[in-house]
């Protein structure tokens, strides 16, 4: 195995891209990712915050304490993972982290691995998705992605600019990918439009160092409120409106042992909207 360290985008070769390594190293070790060439992209991904632009190489620990950063994103960073992982992990990498679905992690031949079964739907799925879960019931684990989705962030990659929502793709028969990032495409920066208020609330199994069972980010800008959820769908999930959950539970299609997430999500959305004032 070789390790390359390109210093600009033009020098990018194909391979397994690695930044903080908190996700990629365990996936390499487990054989879910493989390749003979590792590409350390820290030399070409910007790091740090400049006005409303966040370098994708900025660590979660750096964002957690930065007063320029909207509250929802600071809190999402603060509540994510452990201190060491927040010191190591970049915000760009966090957006691309894979599901915690144990069947996927244990390399069951599930639909995300190209098979024809979602083992979680019939099996153990307490921590899985409650919406968009028909083809694959995995839950997206990124607190940060939910916060950035509520904040209406834009993503600049080595190839294009796009709204964060368009980075993600609910996996289906034709396309099993969870993101629309092309081969060789690297997230470079995130752009945040101004917001008047924002908040992130998170239900987890422990008070610290836990993935979101349900995470709710809410942001208000120009009289409009955007709400996004973590841990409820195979991708970070944007609600159609702040009232989307008020009229009943038709919005969700929980599995037998994920029904508990539905009232938790409703309560957190209500509290998040109230916290915006």
């Amino acid at each position: 195995m070789e390790l390359l360290r390109p210093s600009n985008v033009d020098q990018l070769d194909e391979g397994v891209y690695i930044h903080g390594g908190t996700e990629v190293v365990p996936l390499l070790r487990d054989g879910i990712l493989s390749g003979e060439r590792l590409v350390d992209i820290r030399g070409l991904v910007p790091r740090g915050v400049r006005d409303a632009t966040i370098g994708a190489g900025t660590t979660l620990a750096e964002l957690e304490v930065d007063p320029q950063i909207p509250a929802a994103l600071r809190e999402a960073c603060r509540l994510a993972a452990s201190p060491q992982l927040r010191n190591m992990g970049s915000i760009g990498g966090n957006l691309l982290q894979a599901t915690r679905c144990w069947y996927w992690r244990l390399k069951y031949p599930c639909r995300l691995h190209g098979g024809d079964t979602c083992f979680a739907r019939e099996g153990e799925h307490r921590e899985h998705a409650i919406v968009a879960n028909d083809f694959c019931a995995s839950a997206h684990p990124s607190d940060v992605a939910a916060a950035l989705l509520a904040l209406d962030a834009r993503v600049r990659t080595s190839q294009r600019e796009l709204p964060l929502a368009e980075l993600y793709h609910v996996p289906d028969e034709a396309d099993r990918n969870v993101t629309r990032l092309a081969a060789g495409e690297v997230i470079l920066e995130l752009e945040l439009p101004p917001v008047e208020a924002s908040v992130y609330l998170k239900a987890m199994d422990r008070k610290k160092w836990s993935f979101p069972q349900v995470g709710v980010a809410a942001a208000r800008a120009g009289g409009e409120t955007r709400i996004a959820l973590a841990g409820v769908a195979p991708v970070p999930w944007l609600l159609e409106s702040a009232d989307a959950l008020a009229s009943g539970d038709e919005w969700a299609t929980p599995l037998p042992r994920t029904e508990w997430k539905v009232p938790v999500a409703r309560a957190l959305v209500r509290r998040a909207v109230a916290a915006l004032g």
């Binding site: 390790l3 690695i18 390594g21 908190t22 190293v25 365990p26 590792l38 350390d40 820290r42 620990a61 201190p83 060491q84 992982l85 010191n87 190591m88």
Partner: peptide, 20 residues
């Protein structure tokens, strides 16, 4: 846990060749 430039990091998932 070790420190890299004073910052705590997890050495079990840090690649030795990638340490700066």
């Amino acid at each position: 846990t070790v420190q890299i430039d004073g910052v705590p990091a997890l050495s079990c998932i840090t690649l030795a060749h990638a340490v700066r």
